[in-house]
């Protein structure tokens, strides 16, 4: 039943312990919010799960397989994909191409096919464009296919990141602060988007600072502080915990 298991993961950067002996499991089709003050280790745990950093100790298993040292592209192929806190869009590519490049299907992605089978490649391109366009419609950017990613509003850029991560076909989707920096309208659109992903059956791991939004989307919450996983529980239980509240709000966080 469990599809992601992180066991005793520790990661240091010089003197800083970004993750300190963290262990937790996530069940399929659940939405888990990762919360905690700045520098708590939230992005670091995403990096460990997606292979952007390798922990000094501990293991990560996905669907029963140890992936602690798997290549990043292997993890995506096994069904784990992420977004970035700082988006990392292809600003100079159209919204459509941003998604197209991320499609799971490898067809047309090699030079020999591109040069020596031009008609086949054109057909692949048409099919991929249609797939990418459908994903843009799904995130509400159907009217922006040809717009350069760099020209989109911040809210639209964040939706484009969702379309890109969906293009990989991953079932475990990690979203790093999908709602941060969004104005009220865009915020509601994003929360609605997250609910749509839940309905699709995605397993979601989401870094989220806003406790009201956590209550709206989370089935479960992981609370990090200075690299420690302090608590795992339901949103209500975590938010009711006075000790955690003091850590969280005592840091002068803006909500």
């Amino acid at each position: 039943m469990t599809n992601l298991t992180v066991s005793n993961v520790t990661k240091r950067f010089g003197g800083i312990v970004a993750l300190n002996d963290c262990s937790f499991s996530i069940d399929p089709r659940r939405t888990t919010c990762v919360v905690g003050p700045n520098g708590a280790g939230k992005t670091s745990i995403f990096n460990v799960i997606t292979g952007f950093i390798t922990p000094e100790t501990g293991t990560v298993a996905f669907q029963g397989r140890d992936i602690t040292r798997a290549n990043r592209h292997e993890r995506v192929r096994q069904g784990i994909a992420r977004t970035f806190q700082n988006l990392k869009l292809f600003e100079d590519l159209s919204a459509l191409d941003n998604v197209l490049v991320c499609l799971k299907d490898e067809a047309g992605n090699d030079p020999l096919t591109a040069m020596f089978r031009p008609f086949h490649t054109a057909a692949v391109l048409r099919r991929k464009k249609a797939e990418a366009a459908a994903l843009l419609v799904q995130v509400g950017l159907g009217h922006k296919t040809d717009a350069l990613a760099g020209s989109l509003s911040y809210g639209q850029k964040k939706l484009l990141c969702i379309a890109r991560v969906l293009a990989t076909g991953a079932e475990l989707v990690l979203l790093d602060e999908p709602t941060s920096g969004l104005a009220a309208g865009a915020l509601d659109t994003m929360v609605e988007m997250i609910h749509a992903l839940k309905r699709q059956g995605k397993t979601l791991l989401i870094v989220e600072h806003n406790t009201q939004i956590v209550q709206r989307i989370a089935d479960e919450v992981l609370f990090f502080h200075r690299g420690h996983l302090m608590a795992q529980g339901t949103p209500d239980a975590i938010i009711a915990d006075e000790e955690l509240g003091r850590i969280y709000f005592g840091k002068g966080e803006v909500h």
Binding site: R72, K88, F90, D97, L100, V101
Partner: peptide, 17 residues
Amino acid sequence: RLLHAIRENEVAVVAAG
């Protein structure tokens, strides 16, 4: 398009698998 994306942001291409 993949090559163009790599020029733009290599890390994001890796993240897409």
